[in-house]
């Protein structure tokens, strides 16, 4: 799934400029790191892709869908083809690990047998199959992150958006999560990952897009982490 931002500006009332004149093209199957200081606009940019945020100016096209024109029903269908790993996991505390993943497929109306098979498969893939009957608060931070990834990929999305997927994780666990995401990308899924983790960006080299005060200030193939901050 490709992404195209054409002159996108987002101003939150009354006058907070979150994004300013963004032009960005991400091709199908690409892996892109979004880097930048806290509050630079990375999350807003990602939320524009899922249409949680609507730009004040400009156009966004994702997988050929013009997001400004999409209606409520089509938006639901569109979101089924996107996997999102939230910064704060957003797991449902009163559902077990298995149910947290299964409910994405239930939303899509899949038969129970298929749901069971696919959830089992993906929980094994992310390495928390043995913890499937535990509730999110009973899981460690790394396990919760794996569960969030499992939920994001269980529907086989064409685009994976990960907002700080390794935040608050130790280097070893972050490495494992990164391997997982790279594996998903290798299978053809476009990945857009916002991160502050210098180690990961510099170790697993991919395209780096740096955002500073709502503007794209650097766009490098095989880039490094160092923040230029608009210099």
């Amino acid at each position: 799934m490709d992404i195209k931002f054409s002159g996108v500006t987002k101003i939150f009332e009354p006058d907070i400029i979150a994004l300013e004149d963004i032009y960005l093209q991400v091709d199908k199957g690409e892996f892109v790191y979004l880097v930048g200081e806290t509050g630079s606009g990375k999350t807003t940019l990602m939320r524009c892709i899922t249409r949680e945020v609507v730009p004040t100016r400009g156009q966004i096209s994702v997988g050929g869908n013009l997001l400004r024109k999409i209606n409520r029903f089509d938006l639901a269908l569109f979101r089924r083809d996107i996997g999102v790993v939230f910064q704060s996991f957003l797991l449902l505390p009163n559902l077990t690990a298995f149910e947290n993943v299964a409910f994405v497929l239930e939303v899509m109306g899949l038969p129970p047998k298929e749901i069971s098979e696919r959830v089992s498969e993906v929980l094994k893939l992310v390495g928390i199959w043995r913890r499937r009957n535990l509730y999110p608060p009973q899981l460690s931070g790394g396990e919760q992150q794996r569960l969030a990834i499992a939920r994001a990929i269980v529907n086989g999305p064409s685009l994976l958006i990960a907002d700080e997927p390794t935040g608050n994780l130790d280097t070893h666990t972050a490495d494992e999560i990164m391997q997982l995401i790279l594996g998903i990308n290798a299978a053809g899924t476009t990945v857009l990952m916002a991160t502050h983790n210098q180690y990961l960006v510099d170790t697993y080299r991919h395209r780096v897009v740096e955002i500073h005060r709502g503007r794209v200030v650097r766009d490098e193939e095989q880039g490094r982490y160092e923040l230029n901050g608009g210099c």
């Binding site: 409520r72 029903f73 639901a76 269908l77 979101r79 957003l90 994405v104 939920r151 529907n155």
Partner: peptide, 16 residues
């Protein structure tokens, strides 16, 4: 509310 937010994020329709 949070659950509904996640549901809508993963593509649940309003009816669902």
């Amino acid at each position: 509310a949070e659950e509904i937010g996640v549901m809508m994020m993963v593509g649940a329709t309003s009816t669902y």
